[in-house]
Design a protein around this nucleic acid. Structure first.
Lengths: 207, 207
DNA sequence: ACGTTGCGCTACGGTCGCGTATCGAAACGC
DNA sequence: GCGTTTCGATACGCGACCGTAGCGCAACGT
């Protein structure tokens, strides 16, 4: 979905060379980058095309030529966001969960990814579609891989099998998300261990 | 902090009768009510004095006479928000926690209180003071009374005593807050019971 | 009756962002 | 060189709000 060199938004298709000056890939990148940056700083409502143009060092025309409206630009900008998502090492269930929660915690509390996600959640009140895009892109795969770890815990007999796995995932990740979205401080490492240990102890078979 | 009949914002003080027509308490109420309503619908950034005046059926002048700026109006409107907060019946620790979480869940997912809190959290990114006001007013007392229930659980020997009670509270309430702030559906009653039971089982002494 | 103040209404200049248009210069294929 | 397209820059009309001012009228105390 990246507005890279071969894609020309607003054109039917065809990588065939057209006459005239080609669109600058540098401008593409600068615009999307400025959009993500400003989205993290100002949110959806506060973001203006003029500000994007100014920060990207680009004329408004250059933006409108590519994206007909602010919404399209935002959707593309969110869709272009990349975030590495390594699978857990796969040793013990407890260590894997702590590893994943720690990575998730850092993503939410450091760097621009967390800022953007917080903005998407906040602006999701007026733009559910935009939030859904971010959610599908970022949280869904993480929840899926966490569910896999829980499955492994069930197979190994460390976790009861008669429970809703989604509920377990929510129980594990909610303290981090809730803290990030309500402007709390970052969680100490001990608290993450506490979360994992408490939930695992609570779900022990025959408990 | 209510802009009631005896208080006259913008005046030094003194309930002594002044000459001239007194300010209409009905207007006070209509303005604050419209403000809260619009705050829940549009949020801080989307809210305009003109919209408040229109919905309250009041002239802009009438608003500016009372509150010099939009910020003061919002602070007063949030401060005036009321929310009943009954203590739990005090029977079993499990039932009390379920009772409190259920009430909290309904507050977040039904009625205007949840909408306003979600807005405050969202807008807290640009207005931390406004969010802090709402947090002090609504979530702090609830967390405190939940901590009391946990204390009771410790005294009764149902909960380990060597844990950070704030962490326990976070673990219990986070799934609800997180779901509300990320636009998930309401939690089924069973999930609330699952949360309480899992956490209590995980914190059983000698577990 | 009279002065004072609040009220709704209308209008004002100012700011900001929108989306469009126009301009000359620059970058391609032919 | 030529046509075509994009580029940056600038300007435009439009609409939404801002915060203020002026106008009659209404509601109080004296």
């Amino acid at each position: 979905m990246s507005a890279g060199t071969e894609r020309r938004p607003g054109r039917p298709s065809g990588p065939a060379a057209r006459p005239g000056r080609p669109r600058s890939p540098a401008a593409d990148e600068a615009i999307l980058d400025a959009t993500v940056e400003l989205l993290g700083e100002l949110g959806f409502l506060g973001l203006s095309i003029e500000a994007v143009a100014a920060r990207a060092g680009v004329a408004k025309t250059t933006i409108y030529r590519r994206w007909p409206t602010k919404d399209d630009l935002l959707m593309d900008a969110v869709a272009c966001l990349k975030q590495s998502h390594p699978e857990p090492p796969g040793e013990s269930v407890r260590d894997d969960l702590i590893y994943m929660l720690t990575r998730m915690h850092d993503a939410w509390f450091e760097g621009r990814f967390g800022r953007v996600m917080a903005r998407l959640a906040a602006d999701g009140l007026e733009r559910p579609d935009l939030y859904r895009e971010g959610r599908e892109r970022f949280v869904a795969p993480r929840r899926a891989s966490m569910r896999r770890v829980i499955d492994r815990g069930i197979e190994q007999g460390r976790i009861r099998g008669d429970i809703d796995k989604e509920w377990v995932v929510s129980l594990l990740v909610a303290p981090i998300i809730s803290a990030a979205l309500t402007h709390q401080d970052a969680l100490p490492k001990r608290q993450i261990e506490f979360i994992v240990d408490t939930v695992l102890a609570g779900l022990r078979p025959g408990g």
